[in-house]
Structure formats: structure tokens, C-alpha cells
Design a protein around this nucleic acid. Structure first.
Length: 109
DNA sequence: GGGGTGACGCGTC
DNA sequence: CGACGCGCCACCC
């Protein structure tokens, strides 16, 4: 079943609330090791369920979206984020404000 | 079955 | 301050 971290990554990405963004390292850290960031990127790259996996809410530690975003093609990711209320500055979001804190979210929950 | 790469992050030179 | 390599896991050839 979830023998791999892959499945876990999908589960975490699905938990990202609307209007917030998470970094690959953040997800990787929740998955077990922040070094798994590469696997996170690969997992999103596979994106077997884009309708349930908001990969567009996942950005790198710089808050910038991947230019190699093959999810719909082009900067589609940016438009999706703005549609959720996330302001993008030069293709990057303010992680200080939009970074999804699972701990904080859990605190509010 | 083995080797190389990748939508990243961080440490070190 | 800038550039390079390493580490991790999974998938492709």
C-alpha cells in the first residue's frame, strides 16, 4: 500500500488549505525527511490525481512556481493561485504570509 | 539487474 | 557573494 513516501506526499498535498501554499521541503519534512524534496517534486510530476492534488499550491522554498510546470502548461499555476486569493509577486508568493503551517493549521483546528 | 535522472534543499568551497 | 555537490526516493532506459 503506502510502502513508499509517494503515497504519503499525495496525502499531505491534499491537506493544503485553499489560499495557502506549501514548499517542497515542507512537504518533504512532513513526509519524513526534508531531503525527500526531490521525491516530492517527482510525486507532483506524476500527479496521478490533479483534481485532488493541488500541485499548483506547491512551490519551491523561494515561493516561485516551477517553470517546468507541465500541469496544464505554462504559468497556469499562477492563475490558479491568484484565483484562490494568493497574491503572486513576480511569479513568487509571500511565504511569510501564504506558507502553509500545518502546525498552525492544526492549532486552529 | 544496473545506472542515470529529476517539478528540491542545504552545506561547503 | 557566487558556484558546485551531496542526499534522499522513485521512475525510466
Amino acid at each position: 500500500m503506502d510502502n513508499g513516501v509517494f503515497n504519503l506526499i499525495y496525502d499531505i498535498v491534499k491537506q493544503i488549505p485553499k489560499g495557502k501554499v506549501a514548499t517542497y521541503g515542507q512537504i518533504a519534512a512532513l513526509a519524513g525527511n526534508r531531503r525527500l524534496a526531490r521525491v516530492v517534486g517527482y510525486a507532483l510530476h506524476a500527479n496521478p490525481d490533479p483534481e485532488h492534488i493541488p500541485c499548483h499550491r506547491v512551490v519551491n522554498r523561494l515561493g516561485q512556481v516551477s517553470e517546468a510546470f507541465a500541469f496544464g502548461g505554462g504559468n497556469r499555476q499562477i492563475e490558479l493561485l491568484e484565483a484562490e486569493g494568493v497574491i503572486l509577486t513576480d511569479g513568487a508568493v509571500d511565504l511569510n504570509k501564504y506558507r502553509w503551517n500545518r502546525v498552525t493549521t492544526d492549532f486552529f483546528l
